[in-house]
Design a protein around this nucleic acid. Structure first.
Lengths: 221, 221
DNA sequence: AAGTTTCTTTGACATAGATCAAATATTCAT
DNA sequence: ATGAATATTTGATCTATGTCAAAGAAACTT
């Protein structure tokens, strides 16, 4: 595993910053270890700082009154989260919980705002991170409202293809139940859609490995 | 109508900046007039700068392959749009079109990046704006995936109540068909839900005016 | 490795909301 | 104002997906 300095230097947020500034930043960050399935913060908590995944994976999600969850993001190493309250001064708009064991860096709000104010290129990086996140939300809203579940699954598979640089197969990085929540559906429905796509010869499913038999057909979804 | 200087000064994005900075910003902006229902940019266009509504209203939307649209935002005077690609260097992720006649300010990318580099407080203001928008997206995703259409409509009505500072009635600021698209449903379904809520004594509908007869009941949706 | 817990699949059924079609109502342009 | 274009409402029907229940598979735990 990377150490924190390497992690910071390679993250989108801090990338391109001079070494001495990275030192300053590392100095205000605190690392904490979390077990699997542990809460990091809850919707409505005051935002006293923001986080960055050092190792493991974290989900950001909303819960409905009757306990249904919708995952908004899944973040891995180098990705910051919980920054909205730092800049907007409002409480966290969603919950955060680990999906795996994880090391999480925490940056207290005050120190960080000072750094940004003093540092235009850090500010631009931060703007880029938030802009990118907005763009992902845009896609997610599009998927939720314009596509049916098979289309959303196809989108997700194509996203994994890109991320894993594979044309022939991808490996799900989260349990199927969590994937259902990310796609805004139930695990039963997701299971049926996997079965149907298999029947149609689009994919073949072996546990967490999905063989992509007809990428053209997937695109049409 | 406000002139451009007043507009910038009162916008969330630039508000609080010293007068001379506003001047610099105004200096790199160009105003253009648009008719109603005119395209400003298309999904996939390169982001050569960003925009701000000076007068009128603009919608940001995605189209599905079969021509169905999903509105992502509706922006009015003082609201910036299309800023994502400026920091990220990517093409526009959605389409922009006027809903009314409109005057739109355009800020070219290069000039703006220089300004931010020279003005940390400008960067912090922009971060706050993006954070607020992320928070709204969070709510929109929550509404789309965790609530049914009547619940989404109730959310929207309560949002209008707050915006219009009224407890007894609100006036829809967009046609019902557009509202349907914003709520991720069809105009037929929306119409039926208006009818049902009227039947249940929650509201009374008179054209674009909605009388709120039972705000408690609305909350429960 | 046996047992327990958690995840996934399958079946049967219920329903919110989409779609198509047609009737009204409203808005807009001349 | 008056006719044309748009927007809204209503009716009838269809379907994707949610829900509940239970079986089967996989993953931890001791």
């Amino acid at each position: 595993m990377k150490n924190n300095d390497e992690l910071l230097a390679s993250s989108l947020l801090f990338n391109g910053l001079p070494a001495e500034q990275l030192k300053e930043i590392a100095a205000i960050g605190v690392t904490k270890k979390y077990g699997k399935g542990v809460s990091i913060f809850f919707e409505g908590d005051p935002g006293i700082g923001f986080y960055m995944v050092a190792s493991g994976r974290v989900k950001i999600f909303k819960m409905s009154f009757d306990g249904k969850e919708q995952i908004l993001h899944i973040f891995g190493p180098g990705e910051p989260f919980g920054e909205v309250p730092v800049f907007h001064g409002s409480p966290f708009p969603a919950n955060a919980e680990t999906l795996t064991e994880a090391d999480i860096l925490f940056f207290p709000r005050a120190g960080f705002v000072n750094l940004i104010a003093a540092n235009p290129s850090l500010a631009l990086n931060m703007l880029a991170v938030l802009a990118l996140r907005l763009r992902r939300f845009t896609t997610q809203i599009e998927n939720l409202s314009l596509k049916e579940v098979p289309g959303r699954l196809a989108s997700y598979l194509r996203y994994l293809m890109e991320e894993q640089h594979r044309q022939d197969k991808v490996v799900l990085d989260i349990p199927k139940g969590q994937l259902a929540s990310l796609l805004g559906t139930s695990s039963e429905t997701l299971s049926r859609i996997f079965a149907k796509m298999t029947e149609e010869g689009l994919i073949r499913v072996e546990g967490k490995t999905i063989y992509l038999l007809d990428t053209e057909g997937l695109k049409e979804r």
